[in-house]
């Protein structure tokens, strides 16, 4: 199923091997130009980390991939489906793309188990029993099956974020988007969430992660994308990116966050 190009061979334009293609994407909020000429190809199974100063457009970029935000120019193709205003296409893409938010966004009025079974039952029309078995398997994978009957408000931040990951995985997505998944967490809970994400990466999930966790980027990413002021300034392998940044803006950013 997965078409892996031989290592070292530059990426050819083979649509089957591409999970996401963004070509010349622009976006404006009124007069404010948030995304400027974004060109980014993501291979299947690839792990991309996006970093950059706040307000640089990182979150907006990944929110365009599952159409939480609309782009106004250029094209975005996710798993062979080009995103347009067509609701059917948006639905197809959203079924294939899972998302984890900075603020978890669990549904507070539903139990952990119900949070996970909601989409399989109502979107995929899966029988309840089957959805619950699936949810328990994924809650076990994120190491909190014992919390299934509780409500989100009764869990720690780290646990809530792991539930959010399990909830997204319940739709069996091909691509996972992470929007600053550890930024709202107390420091002692960051590791449990990063470990869960590392496990996911090792299983071959295509991942795009917006994060300030440079250790995670160095260890897990295939490529690191640096954004500033709405544009992609630099894309490089993590070793090159951290040890030999090409642009002044990248150097400045790295000097500010790495001590």
């Amino acid at each position: 199923m997965t078409v892996e190009p031989a290592p070292g061979v530059p990426l050819a334009f083979d649509p089957d091997s591409l999970a996401i293609a963004m070509i010349g994407v622009h976006k404006w909020y009124g007069a404010f130009h948030v995304l400027r000429n974004i060109n980014l190809d993501v291979r299947r199974g690839e792990r991309i980390v996006i970093c950059g100063p706040s307000g640089s457009g990182k979150s907006t970029l990944i929110r365009c991939i599952n159409r939480l935000e609309e782009h106004q120019q250029g094209s975005i193709v996710v798993d062979g489906v080009e995103l347009t205003a067509d609701l059917k296409r948006i639905d197809t893409v959203r079924r294939d793309v899972g998302m984890v938010f900075q603020q978890f966004n669990l549904f507070p009025h539903l139990t952990i188990l119900e949070n996970c079974t909601l989409a399989p039952i109502w979107v995929k029309k899966m029988p309840k029993r089957e959805a619950e078995e699936l949810a328990m398997r994924l809650l076990t994978r994120v190491k909190i099956p014992e919390q299934a009957g509780k409500y989100p408000g009764q869990l720690s931040g780290g646990q809530q974020q792991r539930v959010a990951i399990a909830r997204a995985l319940c739709m069996n997505p091909k691509i996972m988007l992470f929007d600053e998944p550890t930024s709202a967490l107390d420091p002692e809970m960051v590791k449990e969430v990063l470990d869960t994400m590392t496990g996911l990466a090792q299983d071959g999930m295509t991942m795009i992660v917006v994060t300030h966790e440079m250790g995670f980027a160095r260890e897990i990413a295939d490529r690191v994308v640096f954004m500033d002021n709405g544009e992609i300034v630099e894309i490089n392998a993590p070793k090159e990116f951290f040890e030999n940044p090409q642009h002044e803006r990248t150097k400045l950013f790295l000097s500010q966050i790495l001590h």
């Binding site: 599952n66 939480l68 639905d91 959203r94 079924r95 793309v97 899972g98 998302m99 938010f101 603020q103 966004n105 669990l106 549904f107 507070p108 009025h109 909601l118 989409a119 109502w122 979107v123 909830r167 997204a168 319940c170 739709m171």
Partner: peptide
């Protein structure tokens, strides 16, 4: 964010209202 989370897991507008927004 509740509405965005519902959209992100593929729920339609009306279903998100019925299951997520109105109960809260």
């Amino acid at each position: 964010g509740q509405y965005e989370a519902a959209q992100a897991i593929g729920m339609s507008h009306l279903r998100a209202l019925r299951r997520i927004i109105l109960p809260q």
